[in-house]
Design a protein around this nucleic acid. Structure first.
Lengths: 209, 209
DNA sequence: ACTATTATTGATCATACGATCAACAAGAGG
DNA sequence: CCTCTTGTTGATCGTATGATCAATAATAGT
């Protein structure tokens, strides 16, 4: 008799419930894309009513924006942690390229591509996309600047190079989304391309990982 | 009195009407994105009833796919025509990169980005995207192969290089969609990157256009 | 123990989407 | 001029979305 289905979800503190909703939205976005972050979808995943989700979130546009921010921020932190231990800018850049192109983050790529598309009708999301792009660029720019300072890289405009590299990575990952099959030589060719931008000798970035 | 609004649209031959609908869908996609290619949207633009559009198109998924194919095919033909007159593979590659990154095709870029996103729930569109990507890749690969044959380019895997270059271009254009403001150095940096891939001397691709 | 607060629900509204079908009307063929 | 074909419409169905609001129930405070 103890298993009698409770009609209403257990009452929780606002902070706890808000965290639950945010987590449900995040998981949903990673599994099925930002498009799946819907009022009813998030509600079902959290185990509550659509009305409660609406009660906690100002609007679904806003939830999409914060969900995107949460996912990408985590990605950035993860990569920062990964390259922090490496000794030289060259090694850090090679590792960054390698990990971002190894195909283990396709779920995040889906979120990026959808965010670009949805951003055209969701201004909050668009703003969040711009902010996260800036954050990514800052990370890459930092590595490039360090390489210039140490004399490893022959270049002047670290900011533009960072944008260029991110564009390459995003484009290749987006392609792989549709063309999963030849994820092969992505890494090493990108390495050669970056060597060209940085005035490095061929193979300086170590080819594929 | 002659201006009495006719209740029904003038009757036309199926071929003519089908062409009207296709054109309306195309224009709509270029102006507002593939998402705007809706039953009611296309109908309003054509000046007919939603039911008539449904009568001519097997499904809206199919219309999205053919509309995408139409737009991208036109883009490919245009670029092919543009580079056909140039003397060397180096000049053709430089012109190709330059025209695809000059920002005059942002409407097509929107269609591409939306197609990547929508393709996840529209299998016909996804197939169309794959086909058009292959077509683009064939064009670029042809130029690269010619450059290898003539000895201008130092490379072996023309196919992979073509994919890499297209990925770079797509990614940079997608970025520019959100970050329109610094469209500046895209071109020349991409040139240096490609020089790196092809074993060319720095500046061989002529820098920015 | 009683009350005030508020987390939570059920019902409902308005909108937009794709799709179908009987009925109408414009033109073609005899 | 009449009839048959068919391009075209109006109405309608089913679904999915975001959003709002009065009512309920569980907790916190006294």
């Amino acid at each position: 008799m103890s298993g009698a289905p409770r009609r209403s979800s257990a009452r929780k503190s606002p902070a706890e419930r808000a965290a639950e909703i945010a987590e449900a939205a995040r998981d949903l976005a990673l599994e099925q894309g930002l498009t799946a972050v819907t009022l009813r979808g998030v509600a079902a995943r959290t185990g509550v009513t659509p009305a409660l989700v609406a009660h906690y979130e100002p609007s679904m546009d806003a939830l999409a924006a914060t969900t995107f921010a949460s996912i990408v921020s985590a990605e950035i932190s993860e990569v920062e942690r990964l390259i922090a231990g490496l000794p030289t800018p060259t090694a850090r850049l090679a590792a960054l390229i390698d990990t971002l192109l190894d195909g283990t983050r396709d779920d995040v790529t889906v979120v990026w591509v959808e965010a670009w598309a949805l951003g055209r009708s969701n201004e909050q999301l668009a703003a969040s996309v711009r902010a996260r792009m800036d954050a990514w660029q800052a990370v890459v720019q930092g590595v490039v600047e360090a390489g210039i300072a140490s004399g490893e890289f022959q270049a002047t405009d670290a900011a533009s190079i960072a944008w260029q590299l991110l564009g390459m990575i995003d484009g290749l990952n987006a392609q792989a989304l549709v063309r999963w099959g030849d994820a092969g030589a992505r890494g090493s060719l990108t390495g050669h391309a970056v060597e060209g931008m940085l005035g490095l000798a061929r193979g300086a970035l170590g080819g594929a990982g």
